[in-house]
Design a protein around this nucleic acid. Sequence first.
DNA 1: ATGAAAGCGCTAACAC
DNA 2: GTGTTAGCGCTTTCAT
Lengths: 382, 382
Amino acid sequence: MAETRRGRPTMNDVAAEAGVALKTVSRVVNEEPGVNSATAERVRRAIEHLGYRRNDGARVLRRGRTASIGLVIEDVADPFYSGLSRAVEDVALHNGSLVFTGSSGEDPLRERELVLAFCARRVDGLVIVPAGSDHGYLAPELTAGIQAVFVDRPAGAGLNVDTVICDNVGGARSGVAHLIAHGHRRIGFLGDDATIFTAKERLRGYRQALTAASIPYDPSLVAMGTPDQPRVTADITRLLTLDDPPTALFTGNGQTTVTTLRALTTLDPRRATKATTPRDTNTTPGTRDSSTTSGTRGTNTAGGTRDASAAPNLAIVGFDDFELADLLTPAITVVAQDPINLGRTAAELLFRRLTGSAGPAERIQLPTRIIPRGSGELPPPR
Amino acid sequence: MAETRRGRPTMNDVAAEAGVALKTVSRVVNEEPGVNSATAERVRRAIEHLGYRRNDGARVLRRGRTASIGLVIEDVADPFYSGLSRAVEDVALHNGSLVFTGSSGEDPLRERELVLAFCARRVDGLVIVPAGSDHGYLAPELTAGIQAVFVDRPAGAGLNVDTVICDNVGGARSGVAHLIAHGHRRIGFLGDDATIFTAKERLRGYRQALTAASIPYDPSLVAMGTPDQPRVTADITRLLTLDDPPTALFTGNGQTTVTTLRALTTLDPRRATKATTPRDTNTTPGTRDSSTTSGTRGTNTAGGTRDASAAPNLAIVGFDDFELADLLTPAITVVAQDPINLGRTAAELLFRRLTGSAGPAERIQLPTRIIPRGSGELPPPR
DNA sequence: ATGAAAGCGCTAACAC
DNA sequence: GTGTTAGCGCTTTCAT
């Protein structure tokens, strides 16, 4: 409380106040043994009185280890990555470490900036969901002893680091095989941007499933790009107006699945009445308040009602589970991966490295599992 | 690359390599003016050659400011807080600052640990969603010059800090008034744990709306607690089996809304057929794969079909918007607050403080808006 | 334009 | 048990 000097009190201030040497204060603060309990008590009183708190920055400078790690993901606001984040956080806390978090927003430059900023802060290690494919900038940091684990996507060529990913190929294959098992032969693939590793892998799985069922690959059934609404809606429109349109859709990630569902709702004249107020529209309270949407409940029979020319009775399987998938009508069948497991596994591997585990870089692949809920079990028309 | 000494190269190493003094290296690294361009080039080559990277920890120790902030929220994995996080992150990056993130998990002790750990790292400022109500531990830190902004919930008594919250009372009031305007007089309130500030405020709003409509307050219509499925299901069952059951429900936060919807689906025998595979159940791929759920689509008419004794045709308005609210049947009417705006406002206020803005603690209240989508416009039965 | 010396707050290594 | 000294890697101040 009582401070005469500018700034926070230091160990020196405490030492002066308690009438002991600096080192004794250090011993008390760090609970080292071998301090007379009376002396210790005097020091503790001085600490209390001055409101002293150890400066971990200085400590770190002296000791080498910062007890902090850096986490670079694509976007914390995405439920997939926020689950992963939480898992990393928990493991870090468990290991007495703090975590710097940063979202790259799928921008390789921002990824690089964040990683290097974390390295400049001398984090002990990094958990990275890479946006870019060139990680040469990391090499000197690794040489210098900073540990890194890549999650969800592998590092760019030439970098030999631990990696934790899910079985993208196998997951997509099983999801598409599921649709085939239910009688579909024209299956659309809506994927994330083709530059993204997971998107490419899942497309591979899609093709493998087709091959296994002796269904020829038709590139006109494939649409890839960022999962923004206009693009997805346009692509779906294109697919549905093909001469031989798909009877089922496989969507390549969570965002794309949701965007697809919204597109289908828009395209279906009967369903369209339901979602009158799109998200993010500015609605003045009390204005369109009661009129437009009331009474619509029960007017749509929810399934099997889409106008064939616009949004036919499509079967859907999505990669990634998402909240409320089970409450939609029909409920959405998904190929689920476990973001928490992904994050936990990566973080645990990182801390194992930090506590001395040597050996070559590991590549851990986590399984996916299919969760049938209804949308993926719909048969093709006729 | 070429390192003989242990650890990373320092400015000293660079200086030796370039044949200049330490200070000259510092000048080059920090792009200070007044260095001969030839000398600077030599230094730069040495930096490149040695793979030198400035140690920001040491820099910070000398300069005072750490260019980092701490963010303590309830749970990054919750979409509300992950949106808020992203906004804080973006503002921080914009201000050249890194952010330590930590989830308190609604545990006051963990909140305290995190905050103090951040303070020990000498973050410049803090953005806190408080879990506890006693923030006495923060006082010395504030005195020492660490800035703090509280978001979503105010600080405990006695702490005079900047606060950014949404209009919980007004939002709840307007949501409940909306239901009343649609003819409801028996309205259940399902809130978060009663110890949580926002839960209490929203209950107040609920009561205000009732009072304004001269509807007596009936405590048996109110249920508060953590939004776990068993508790919510039990409470809803209790509400629906009252002699005079509610015809509408107001749910007090996003999690509760979702849990409520899931409970209603379970309670409704007709809807129950739909969500056969609950989330988080371990389904072995290929086992229950195709049998249980196929063909259910179209069997439920989605709205207006609940068994009156279990889950009648309830109107619902929820506090907090959530992804897919618009795609449910019926789509869910919500009182939306804007987590991104909340985070951005708080972070901007923090950085304004950090750049010298003085003045008394501010208390900023952000508006909510009602988004009618269908579920809140259903009339009471008869 | 360049450099030498001091010191940020702490811990490690060694006295006493 | 306690204290002294050095120095982590950098910036600051003041010389040259």
